[in-house]
Simulated assay, not measured.
Amino acid sequence: MDWDDLRVFLAVARTESLSGAGKTLRCDAATVGRRVTRLEEALKARLFLRSPQGYQLTDAGQRLLPHAEAAETAMTAAGEDLGGTAGKISGQLRIGAPDGCANYVLPQVCAAISDLHPDLDIQIVALPRVFNLSRREADLVIGVSPPTAGRLTVQKLTDYHLHLAAHRDYLARHPPIRSTADLGAHRIIGYIPDMIFDKELDYLGETGAGPVRLGSNSVSVQMQMVRARAGIGVVHDFAIPGAAGVVKVLPDEISLKRSFWLIRHADDRRSDRMNRLAEALSEGLRREVARLEALT
């Protein structure tokens, strides 16, 4: 079985299309289609169901998938073993994260990793949704809750804290807030309710605050609304040091705690490169969250 054919198989399985696989592999869709057909003929098994909606794995394709992923891991490990220099890591690392972490914590963490490994290309994908590791949308994912299904390795990174917050100028122009009962007189900033992609992000139910009057599916947009003196919102403590004039509201009465989790594909445990990168990311994130929260 040709490794290049397995690479094509994995690309189609992850993108569910010939064109998507072609972009990943930097070749045309027709070539991808011929390679898939060649692999199916060699194995005497149909690997994909073709439809207008895309390419879906058959039972035979599902059985082949873990073997192809194991081959990919072995080839990557061989390249790392033969090509490594003085402990430096090169290549590409794509990190998926919710936009709060991606905006306020990861830039500093990734800058430090890049200083240690200047030939490493780091990409931060900040999206308010759950990432699909089986499709290799990212190499490492930071989540706000641990997944319960899939061939994944999950470890808790650190707790982080959130509070109601507003700009000092907003608070000076509006009725005082001495208890949660006073929140009803204020404009609330938060998530668009039907776009909350993880139950851990459903903050307002725990605060006693009223309905969302200014909403966004992005944490960073919500913070910009708070900075614009538009109202009161739940913000990450680690975001406050970078937002001049923003202060906590009722910190002794309302305090939320959540956790970040590092999520990896199970096969990546065999890769020394990925283990080292995961360790560097984990240590850096814990340290940066603790540093920023200590400033609030």
Score class of each variant (00 low, 15 high):
Arg26His: 13
Leu120Gly: 03
His117Val: 04
Ala45Asn: 12
Val144Lys: 05
Leu18Val: 06
Glu69Asn: 03
Ala112Arg: 13
Tyr104Trp: 11
Ile142Gln: 01
Ser134Tyr: 05
Glu80Thr: 12
Cys27Ala: 14
Pro107Phe: 12
Ala21Val: 04
Ser145Glu: 08
Ser134Pro: 02
Leu47Glu: 08
Leu64Trp: 07
Pro98Glu: 08
Ala71Pro: 01
Ser17Val: 04
Leu18His: 08
Leu49Asp: 05
Gly100Ser: 14
Ala102Cys: 06
Val8His: 11
Leu93Lys: 03
Ile124His: 07
Glu72Arg: 14
Thr15Trp: 04
Leu140Tyr: 02
Ala78Trp: 11
Ala74Pro: 00
Cys101Glu: 09
Glu80Met: 10
Gly54Gln: 06
Ala112Asn: 04
Arg94Ile: 06
Asp121Pro: 01
Gly33Ala: 14
Glu80Cys: 06
Leu133Ile: 06
Gln62Leu: 12
Ser145His: 09
Ala60Val: 00
Cys27Val: 15
Ala60Ile: 00
Ile124Gln: 08
Arg14Lys: 06
Gly79Asp: 15
Phe48Ala: 05
Gly54His: 02
Ala77Pro: 00
Leu120Phe: 08
Val12Arg: 03
Leu120Thr: 05
Lys88Leu: 13
Gly143Ile: 02
Val12Pro: 03
Leu25Arg: 11
Ile122Arg: 15
Val8Thr: 15
Ile95Glu: 00
Ala112Gly: 01
Thr15Glu: 14
Leu82His: 11
Cys110Glu: 00
Thr76Lys: 00
Leu93Gln: 01
Leu127Asn: 00
Val8Tyr: 08
Ser114His: 12
Gly61Glu: 02
Pro128Asn: 12
Ala42Gly: 01
Arg50Pro: 06
Ala21Gly: 03
Val12Thr: 03
Gln53Glu: 15
Leu116Lys: 14
Asp28Glu: 15
Ala97Gly: 05
Pro107Cys: 11
Asn132Glu: 13
Ser134Gly: 10
Ala111Trp: 04
Arg35Phe: 13
Ser17Asn: 04
Ala111Met: 07
Arg7Leu: 10
Leu49Phe: 08
Pro128Thr: 07
Gly61Leu: 03
Asn132Arg: 12
Ala78Thr: 11
Ala97His: 05
Cys27Trp: 09
Asp115Trp: 03
Gln123Gly: 02
